[in-house]
Amino acid sequence: MTLKINGLVGGYSRIPVLKDISFEVNSGQLVGLIGLNGAGKSTTINHIIGLLEPQKGNITIDDIKLKDNPKAYKGKLAYMPEMPVLYQELTLKEHLELTIMAYNLDPADTWKRANELLKTFRLDNKLDWFPANFSKGMRQKVMIVCAFMTKAQVYVIDEPFLGLDPLATRDLLNLVDTEKKRGAAILMSTHVLSTAQEYCDYFVLLHQGKIRAQGDLEELRSIFNDKQASLTDIYLGMTQDGHANE
């Protein structure tokens, strides 16, 4: 179970936003995608989930390209957007039913898992409500439940912490940890660097559409020549460096 991004050049128009991006997310690994606003994180994610087509390079999950076998590719992937995306006219219960249908999951098993997740995120008494009317944090929790009930092989999580209360943040991190141990490959973009430093196994630092550096914390520290540096130090150093080069 590996997500491989290989020489990706892409963007929304002909002028590419991403210039030659390559990295891997392996089974049992949590990779942090770090970068400023506009660095290209969301564009990278949109390429991975198939909303954008690469202009050059390719993206594979277990050596399958989206173009070659969309059903197999998409079936291995679960996505959690930065802004919760919900169906206006579906109740919470129907959102879960739809996910089960879409991913062809076993209803009995998945409902058991879903109920546990609902309980964890304190949504179990809201099954007949329209989640589109929930608060940001609660909608985010619905996204978490919908993504994690699929037991996907690859998770793509975009900025998950905004709007979550501390309890939900902890529960989400526990969930990510369990999935990692199960063998899922997880890519997470975030600005919350202290959390990223603590939980991610590997970092991809994006700046102006290019990868400035990648590696685990030790590797990043040696690239930036500072053995004590925190991820925040490295990140800020990198961006200021970038400004100086402009």
Partner: peptide, 14 residues
Amino acid sequence: TFEDNVFTHIYPID
């Protein structure tokens, strides 16, 4: 109606 909902594009369906 569902064209701009990202999930309808990423579901593994025909």
